[in-house]
């Protein structure tokens, strides 16, 4: 594990030396969090005053939007979108970082030196998968968790408390299942990266293959929040298995003539 940690530490150091990338990732995430929080907050204010609520419903009806109990409906959809966007952001950003994980080594010319070192290919890939998932996860959780905890104190979200922390299912999904699935995707993206020689092809591969997978997985994790905590644990376990399989597959790909 020491060598895995060394790979993670060096990758994180390189991430820190790219402040523009971190700011861009943070801004996208902040925009999503701000948008959903503002929407749910506005609905909370509307729901607090019966007169304002009546006006709101009347305005919706006048606009031709026929909804029974519009506030809970919109809140539930907003929270569903919030959860989906959090996970898809985590998976998407992870895939982008991981997509150039090994092609970056080729471009720097460091791959032969890594292969000469007492570093197993699985350790290299696992270290890169962890680092690729860790930075986006810190950004997503760092911005998303406080906002989610704040929203969870509003009475308007009470019927959907399972869509927000501190519900155990949510915590398992976002603090355990999300990063595990992100690492699984990272290892797939890294496997693509191990076979190509330029960043452009690696990124195209990531978007064409991993992008679709991240949408599907984000939908599955968000949709599964309705289930109990045991199911979230099961989803996380599947994510762990997928990660291990992905890391093994990537190490195999890398093991086949890595330099030629």
């Amino acid at each position: 594990m020491r060598r895995v940690w060394l790979v993670v530490r060096r990758e994180l150091l390189e991430h820190r030396r790219q402040p523009g990338m971190l700011v861009a990732m943070g801004l996208v995430q902040a925009a999503i969090v701000a948008l959903v929080t503002a929407l749910v907050g506005m609905l909370a204010l509307i729901a607090r005053d019966p007169k304002v609520l009546a006006d709101f419903e009347a305005n919706l009806a006048a606009a031709g939007i026929a909804m029974v109990d519009p506030v809970p409906t919109v809140v539930e959809n907003a929270l569903a979108a919030f959860d989906f966007l959090l996970v898809s952001q985590l998976l998407g950003m992870t895939a982008v970082l991981a997509a150039q994980a090994l092609v970056h080594e080729r471009q720097c010319g460091t791959l032969p030196f890594l292969l000469l070192a007492p570093l197993r290919r699985t350790e290299l890939v696992l270290g890169k998968a962890i680092a690729s998932a860790l930075t986006p996860w810190l950004i997503v959780v760092g911005l998303g968790l406080p906002a989610a905890l704040w929203m969870s104190t509003w009475s308007v979200v009470a019927p959907f408390h399972w869509r927000l922390p501190p519900h155990p299912g949510w915590l398992v999904s976002f603090l355990l299942g999300g990063p595990l699935w992100a690492m699984a995707l990272a290892s797939v993206a890294a496997a693509l990266s191990a076979r190509v020689r330029d960043v452009r092809t690696a990124q195209q591969g990531a978007w064409m293959v991993v992008f679709v997978a991240s949408i599907v997985i984000a939908g599955a994790i968000g949709g599964a929040l309705v289930e109990d905590t045991a199911f979230q644990l099961f989803m996380a376990a599947v994510g762990l298995v997928a990660t291990l399989l992905g890391v093994g597959a990537c190490a195999l790909v890398l093991g086949r003539d890595p330099l030629h």
């Binding site: 150091l13 790219q18 720097c108 010319g109 890594l114 070192a117 007492p118």
Partner: peptide
């Protein structure tokens, strides 16, 4: 066995010492 290639094989965002330390620790 140590190898030197035409490209030095260093991480561009790390300092010289950080590069050398990292590879040393890896060994």
């Amino acid at each position: 066995v140590a190898l030197i290639t035409p490209e030095p094989g260093l991480y561009p965002l790390l300092t010289g010492r950080e590069n050398l330390r990292w590879f040393g620790e890896l060994h």
